[in-house]
Simulated scan of single mutants.
Amino acid sequence: MRTLLRAGLAGALACGVLVTAIGVGRDGDGGGRAPAPPTGPYVALGDSYTAGPRIPDQSGSPAGCERSGRNYPSLVAAELKIKASDFRDVSCTGATIADLSAPQSTDDGTNPAQFDALSGATRLVTLGIGGNDIGFASVIRRCVTSGVLYEVTGGRDGDGDAPCTELYTSGGRDEIRKKIEAAGGRLARALDEARRRAPKARVHVVGYPAILPSDGGDCGRELGLAPGDLAFVRSKERELNTMLRRRAEAAGARYVDTYGASEGHDACSAEGTRWIEPLVPRSPAASVHPNERGERGMADAVLHALGARP
Rank of each mutant, 00 (worst) to 15 (best):
R123N: 11
G52F: 00
C268D: 08
F232M: 00
L4W: 03
I180H: 01
V43S: 04
C15T: 14
V206P: 03
R274C: 09
D218P: 02
E249C: 06
P103H: 11
R221I: 10
E237P: 00
E271Q: 13
V76H: 02
R70H: 13
T20K: 05
L223F: 00
Y208F: 13
D99T: 14
V203R: 04
G28F: 06
T20F: 09
T153A: 06
D107C: 10
S48A: 15
G31H: 14
P209N: 12
H304Y: 07
I211V: 15
Q104S: 10
S262A: 15
G60K: 05
Q58P: 05
A301T: 10
G25W: 09
K200S: 15
L279F: 02
D107W: 12
L75I: 14
D266H: 11
T153S: 15
E237R: 02
C143D: 01
S91W: 05
S101D: 13
S262H: 04
G220I: 00
L306M: 07
A113C: 08
D174A: 08
G64A: 15
P37L: 13
V148N: 01
R173S: 12
R70A: 15
H304S: 13
L187H: 02
R195V: 12
L4H: 04
V19R: 10
S269W: 02
I55L: 14
T258R: 03
W275H: 08
D215W: 09
T242L: 12
D257Y: 06
V256S: 07
T258L: 11
A51H: 05
G60M: 07
L149R: 00
D108V: 05
T50S: 11
G40A: 10
R142L: 00
N291C: 08
S235D: 15
I140S: 02
A95L: 08
N241D: 14
R173I: 12
A198D: 04
A251V: 06
A51K: 12
I134W: 02
I180Q: 01
G8E: 13
T126V: 11
T39G: 13
A253I: 10
Q58W: 07
G171L: 06
E249G: 10
S68D: 09
L230I: 09
R234Q: 13
N111L: 15
A113W: 09
I276Q: 05
N111E: 15
G32N: 14
R142K: 13
K236F: 03
G172V: 10
A137T: 01
H289K: 10
G46K: 02
G184A: 14
G297L: 11
A113D: 05
A248Y: 02
F232I: 01
E271S: 14
P73M: 08
P103G: 07
A95T: 04
P37D: 10
A190H: 04
W275P: 03
A194R: 02
S59W: 12
P209Y: 10
C164S: 00
E66F: 13
C15E: 06
V90A: 04
R296E: 15
G32F: 11
I140D: 01
G64N: 06
A7H: 14
